[in-house]
């Protein structure tokens, strides 16, 4: 469907060593500097070359945005086939988290995590959750005002 991953395909099939694909999440500082330009390969690699979970810029058809809340729908680590990123996301989502927080925690671009989250919702690993007490915009604004004043 989307063609913007074509380079990723070629690179994954061609040059990318398997350890890079399956290695642990890059939490070591300096990773970006170390890998520099080559880093563009990773986000596509973590979707295992699946063009249906692309890095998504702008709102997805599924309506998942940066502040969408998701929660784990099952216990992480019980599915051997899970890729490490997904397992990590599940672990962080044991309580409701926003997509952007998950992205920061797993050190992946937010657009990529959004794609993975959408896939994980589709396969039943995650579920979306709304606020327990949805508030009207005006009530939110007043709550924020009070909260900010008491900082």
């Amino acid at each position: 469907m989307r063609t913007d991953g074509v380079h990723g395909h070629e690179a994954v099939a061609g040059a990318l060593p398997e350890e890079t694909v399956r290695g642990p999440a890059p939490e070591a500082p300096g990773h970006d500097e170390e890998f520099g330009q080559e880093r563009f390969l990773r986000p596509f690699a973590v979707t295992a070359g699946d063009p249906d979970t692309p890095a998504v810029l702008g709102p997805e058809p599924s309506g998942i945005d940066m502040l969408s809340l998701v929660v784990a729908a099952r216990v992480p680590g019980r599915h051997e086939w899970l890729r490490p990123e997904r397992e990590t996301i599940l672990g962080h989502a044991l309580r409701a988290r926003t997509v952007v927080e998950l992205a920061a925690e797993v050190h992946l671009p937010v657009g990529q995590v959004r794609g993975i989250v959408a896939a994980m919702i589709a396969d039943g690993s995650l579920q979306r959750c709304g606020p327990s007490r949805p508030l009207a915009r005006q009530d939110i604004l007043h709550a924020v005002l009070v909260g900010l004043r008491s900082l």
Binding site: L69, G130, P131, S132
Partner: peptide, 9 residues
């Protein structure tokens, strides 16, 4: 999982 109170973001 049983859900705790979830705030609006």
């Amino acid at each position: 999982r049983p859900q705790e109170a979830i705030p609006q973001a």
